[in-house]
């Protein structure tokens, strides 16, 4: 047996970070009652913009920042269309994916990289000194920790803050929230922008850390997986980590098992996370999904 479970866990954390980041953004969007299927499009625009910003400035963190803005900017298109021009969310989200794939390829046509841009690993004090575990689990780059902090932050925001309460109210019953005097559209636009920013950051993590390079279509469906994880987590922030690590874990694990020479039906194994998601959906029943998810809202109606 050549598989080192600790290394596996560490690899899994890196592989799962982009989907976790995109998913935590989408979770907030969906909790506000909006279904944005354009995650893949926002992610890939973030990937190319982050790559360009990072490599032209020589600072990967500026790259990440650029990606956040790029993702949010693209999501603004979705926000304006769905919230103010009352377009259908499903169709607009799909359109956003097409648009993002095209736009990113256009932007990236002349993107050039410098080979030496690296994102430093950050060893957490004390924790990283724990024998075995510490060396692996607590010596990642900043974004890995950030993704987990974001999950914690979103959880705290939704659970303990008034703004979080309002956001949930908007997602559960926008008519009632509106009647109570909350600005449904403003809340949703902000949620969408947050989702876009997270997706952008997720994309940049792929193009700046995980691969790292820019190539057309580099996100390769990660945005769609993020959508699946939100459902898998039944819209609960902490469960996202489990979901993301499960999805990322299946990928990393199957690669490791193959290298080990085990006969596994790899072609079929990649269905497993999606089937698991459906099973989770059945077990949690509906009810838990934000009640206004995907429904259009207009203040006068």
């Amino acid at each position: 047996m050549d598989i080192n479970p600790i290394l596996l866990l560490a690899a899994l954390m890196v592989a799962s970070t982009p989907i976790l980041l995109a998913a935590i953004g989408e979770l907030v969007v969906e909790r506000a009652g909006v279904l944005n299927l354009g995650v893949e499009g926002m992610m890939i625009v973030g990937a190319v913009c982050g790559y360009i910003a990072g490599h032209s400035s020589g600072d990967p963190y500026l790259g990440f920042l650029g990606a956040v803005f790029a993702g949010a900017a693209v999501s603004l298109v979705f926000a304006v269309l769905t919230q103010f021009l009352m377009t259908n969310q499903v169709a607009t989200g799909l359109g956003l994916t097409l648009f993002g794939l095209g736009l990113s390829a256009l932007i990236g046509m002349r993107a050039e990289g410098t080979p030496d841009l690296t994102v430093a690993k950050l060893a957490l004090p004390i924790l990283s000194d724990i024998p075995v575990l510490g060396a692996i689990l607590f010596r990642h780059d900043l974004v890995v920790y950030l993704s987990i902090l974001l999950v914690a932050g979103v959880w705290a925001f939704l659970t303990y803050t008034r703004a979080g309460l309002i956001l949930r109210a908007v997602g559960e019953n926008h008519e009632a929230a509106h009647a109570l005097g909350y600005n449904v559209r403003l809340v949703r636009v902000l949620a969408i922008l947050f989702g876009g920013g997270c997706a952008g950051l997720a994309g940049a993590y792929i193009s700046l850390v995980r691969v790292p390079q820019w190539i057309d279509g580099i996100t390769a469906g990660a945005g769609w997986i993020a959508l699946a994880i939100v459902v898998f987590a039944s819209w609960k922030p902490w469960r996202l980590i489990a979901g993301a690590y499960l999805f990322g874990g299946v990928t990393v694990l199957q690669l490791n098992l193959q290298a080990e020479g085990l006969k596994i039906p790899v072609e079929y194994l990649s269905m497993a996370p999606y089937l698991a998601t459906i099973i989770v959906l059945v077990m949690i029943r509906a009810g838990r999904a934000p009640a206004s998810l995907g429904k259009p809202f207009h203040p006068s109606s």
């Binding site: 269309l81 607009t92 359109g95 648009f99 095209g102 736009l103 990113s104 256009l106 057309d216």
Partner: peptide, 13 residues
Amino acid sequence: AAAILTFQGMLLF
């Protein structure tokens, strides 16, 4: 090819 994809996206929007 990317320009056409972008163009289609704009048409949809």
